[in-house]
């Protein structure tokens, strides 16, 4: 005979049809004589009825379901060979990205290098020039300085032509700040012709600024004055520099290689030669 407690434990699997025939018969026997279990079995069956009342989903089309799922899935896994190729491709992409970044940086640098005082990149240009100057070895620094000074005059000319005399003035002032060291450098130039050409080139550029300022009806007086004083300073260096810039002196070397003084001195001092000069001097 099944106990009441065991029968109660078995009522739910009984209602779910999970008991063997023998077990079912034992429950049937108990329920027939137990009003409490009969009531409880009724309640369990009602609950099952309630639980199975939940309907299945209405029809859902597969195509949109799959399309949406496909979009949510991670990229298709690929065989090892392809994975390796993808690795290379990634490396290539990384390289391309790096190259692009470098190119962009270089482009910016170039853009900055050619920028004018009215450009937002102009401060970069000054930073780049300062860095270039600092990184240049001392013997070549004069050349860099000259190119920077020349660039200031180019800017001034363009600004003057564009009706921006204030910016042109700034550029010429910057040029003037550099002028003393440029002059000093030119004085040390071993090749007199080179030094002379440099001075002449700067003078031409100053004239360019002057003309650009003058071609406008409202030429800027301050700019005009600055250009003139710069020219004077250059001229004075030329006057003083004339004897300072050492011409090449032919040596008595049999190879006829012109001997060059290692540095400019107030007076040219030909190197003493061991051999007598094949061409005696006039005196």
């Amino acid at each position: 005979m099944l106990s009441h407690a065991t029968a109660q434990d078995w009522l739910i699997p009984y209602a779910d049809g999970m008991l063997s025939n023998e077990e079912r018969q034992r429950i049937d026997g108990h329920v027939a004589s137990c009003p409490g279990c009969r009531e409880e079995l009724k309640s369990v069956r009602l609950l099952n009825l309630l639980l199975v009342s939940l309907p299945p989903a209405p029809p859902v089309a597969f195509a949109p379901f799959w399309l949406r799922l496909q979009a949510a899935l991670p990229a298709a896994r690929v065989p090892k060979e392809k994975a390796r190729f993808r690795l290379y491709r990634r490396a290539g992409l990384a390289f391309a990205a790096a190259a692009f970044a470098t190119l962009t940086a270089v482009s910016c640098a170039f853009a900055a290098e050619s920028s004018l005082p009215d450009s937002p990149l102009y401060p970069l240009k000054h930073a780049e020039e300062a860095a270039r100057l600092a990184l240049t070895p001392a013997p070549q620094r004069g050349r860099v300085q000259l190119s920077i000074a020349s660039e200031r005059l180019r800017e001034a000319q363009v600004m003057a032509s564009s009706g921006k005399p204030a910016l042109a003035v700034k550029s010429v002032r910057a040029f003037r700040l550099m002028l003393p060291s440029i002059v000093a450098g030119l004085k040390q130039e071993s090749d007199a012709r080179v030094a002379k050409d440099e001075v002449h080139a700067l003078d031409v550029e100053l004239t360019g600024v002057q003309e650009a300022n003058a071609t406008r009806g409202d030429d800027d007086a301050e700019l005009k004055q600055l250009v003139l004083s710069s020219k004077d300073e250059l001229d004075s260096s030329r006057e003083v520099g004339q004897p300072l810039i050492v011409p090449t002196v032919p040596t008595a070397s049999p190879s006829a290689t012109p001997s060059v003084t290692p540095r400019s001195t107030p007076r040219p001092t030909p190197r003493p030669t061991k051999r007598p000069d094949p061409k005696p001097s006039d005196d």
């Binding site: 309907p55 299945p56 989903a57 859902v60 597969f62 379901f65």
Partner: peptide, 11 residues
């Protein structure tokens, strides 16, 4: 299997 999963989810 999508119908089966949808039914479970919908219920």
């Amino acid at each position: 299997h999508y119908r089966l999963v949808l039914n479970v989810a919908f219920r």
